[in-house]
Design a protein around this nucleic acid. Structure first.
Lengths: 125, 125
DNA sequence: ACGGTATATTGAAGACTGTCAATATATTGG
DNA sequence: CCAATATATTGACAGTCTTCAATATACCGT
């Protein structure tokens, strides 16, 4: 007879068949998972990905009207996503006269990338 | 006098000041952005990240009751997230008797990682 | 076949997200 | 100051996501 899995609903003193054994340490803490999920959530939108790609490619010299022209959404939507990215620390904006120029914060991107790399590494165990 | 940005709302024949010039090629196609955003959306949840981490660490020998025991959500919620991950091709399940054992599909994970790497690379231009 | 255990599915409720029109705020040139 | 342009914010609406209790389905041992 095989043992029940440790997560089994069978009462501890019950004699039953079973499937496996591991008492699972959840391998990624609550806080780590939340942090990574937050970073991924910020990236996980096509408009935001395209904003980042455009800003990265045109280092520091793109105003909102150009972004609006390059993307299939209206100006308030562009501003909305820019705000999310800025609140998340991934970009920054600088006013120059009438216009506001956005740029990627490369060190923040590198941090996100690093957290992700650590995740992949942990998956390789 | 400086030129208006290409995305400016100023009528083409209007004489105005301006900010910049780039006619923006959106740097990441609609389809590429959608694909990457989809993959990231699947990853972007703490429970799903922890499920993947647990499955990766216990290669191929974890049943749902163990997952439920290791995570702060109820069984239907675990099943729901497992379903999303399976529909996305990231994991697979095999029934063995009473239990269903899940495992990570490492080649699918590698694909996601590859798409992400390509994104980071494109950000480095 | 039956009772018990494992997992999936359904359906409902609430929270969250993305989009845009309308509006507000800031800046500039005249 | 005024008119025009750039960007942000507000508020509303629709759609999606997350969770869970209840229920359905599958398998096992007796």
């Amino acid at each position: 007879m095989i043992e029940p899995p440790s997560g089994s609903h069978v009462a501890a003193n019950t004699v039953t068949p079973g499937c496996c054994a591991p008492v699972i340490d959840s391998a990624l803490s609550d806080a780590e998972a939340a942090q990574l999920a937050g970073a991924l959530t910020l990236l996980a939108h096509p408009i935001r990905l395209r904003l980042l790609a455009i800003l990265a490619r045109h280092g520091g010299h793109v105003c909102v009207c150009d972004l609006e022209a390059a993307l299939p959404v209206k100006q308030p939507t562009v501003s909305h996503h820019l705000r999310l990215l800025r609140d998340g620390g991934l970009i920054e904006g600088e006013r120059r006269g009438q216009w506001i120029y956005y740029a990627v914060r490369r060190e923040a991107l590198a941090t996100v990338r690093g957290v992700l790399e650590e995740f992949w590494a942990r998956m390789a165990d």
